[in-house]
Write a protein that binds this DNA or RNA. Sequence first.
DNA 1: TCATTAGTTAACAAAATTGTTAAACAATTT
DNA 2: AAATTGTTTAACAATTTTGTTAACTAATGA
Lengths: 207, 207
Amino acid sequence: MKEERSITENSILNAAMDEFLNKGFSGARTVAIAEKAGVNHAMLHYYFRTKESLFERVIERVANQFLDSLTKALDSQDYNGNFVDKIVMIMNVHLDFVITEPRLPLFMFREILPYPSRLEQLKIKVLSGISYLASQLLHEFDRAKHNKEVDEIDFLSLIFDILSLNISLAISSQFAPDLLGLRKEEYYAMRKKENEILLRKRLQING
Amino acid sequence: MKEERSITENSILNAAMDEFLNKGFSGARTVAIAEKAGVNHAMLHYYFRTKESLFERVIERVANQFLDSLTKALDSQDYNGNFVDKIVMIMNVHLDFVITEPRLPLFMFREILPYPSRLEQLKIKVLSGISYLASQLLHEFDRAKHNKEVDEIDFLSLIFDILSLNISLAISSQFAPDLLGLRKEEYYAMRKKENEILLRKRLQING
DNA sequence: TCATTAGTTAACAAAATTGTTAAACAATTT
DNA sequence: AAATTGTTTAACAATTTTGTTAACTAATGA
């Protein structure tokens, strides 16, 4: 059933992904995409008809990657340590994923979330994808709260804290190392450590 | 010495600011700017020559606002409470500012930081503007650390933590309330409270 | 191997967007 | 009030970017 994708089609899609991530829809140029893909620019219309529909195909990919990032994080099952360690692990798995494509968050913020139809496309895919894992984690979390393993905090706030910290790290990693005169890896390490400290302290009871 | 700015010039600049913040340079349309400003679109070229140079004028404004946001935050002087309270206040002052124009962070990330010349324009203005206040705060901070008033953490990490939390709040405030079915004010309140808890716990010694 | 289909190319057309100009109008100076 | 200067307008020109086409080539299947 799997459609064979020609090498041309694929390289256009890859090039488009790169160009759209870098420049957004309006900044991207179809001829630049074709060049990057090493094909005649008419091929782009042959395979994808319009810039717009090519963009939709890219969003599809982005949505998949985004879903993957959340799924992988939430799916770090069967952890034997305490619950705080599990949450920390979830954060770290998510971070590792986000760092493999640090341009994704800004792309989502500027190119998807502000456009109702694109947002809808994403929501459908993501919500159905993670709802089970999320509710499972929520239950574990409530239990841990009840057992006084973690501090009082509502689940949503915790998720937003983790996303805030990880996404900030991904975004800043594209500029901060330059500004600070650090190597990217140094910067990652430094911020990752700090994020973990923050999360642990946040979940820690009292003080 | 102050150049009188005609009402036309000013309304173009305002409209341009709005359009560029919403759509970025490549997404902005000069005719849309002219319409928003309620002037013939030739006026835009009469006063600003090109879209590019109009954009530079907008960057100037953005840089000023950005500098203001940092200055105001760092300048919350003469606070009588303990040092942690002071840092928290700095975070809150900065947050209030960021929230008045929540589109600014994404704009900076996508439209300024990736372009060396624009970045330079910003750096010159901002660094010279805040270096004194920042070094002053750094000294107070080191003293507080030495006196065991706050936990061990380096200054830069602290600053990045605060910026991460505040900027995440500003960005997410543009989408999250919708997605969660909250009013914007509820969302602000909820996240602001959480950010403060995080910061206090982070600075708190031991556990 | 010949016919049919799919893929590719270069040249071109169409659309969208920015930038210019000449003429009209308003304000200001002498 | 005449002259000069600055502002505004509508029409247009130039440029950039997307999209199309017709002719050509390579692959595929009867």
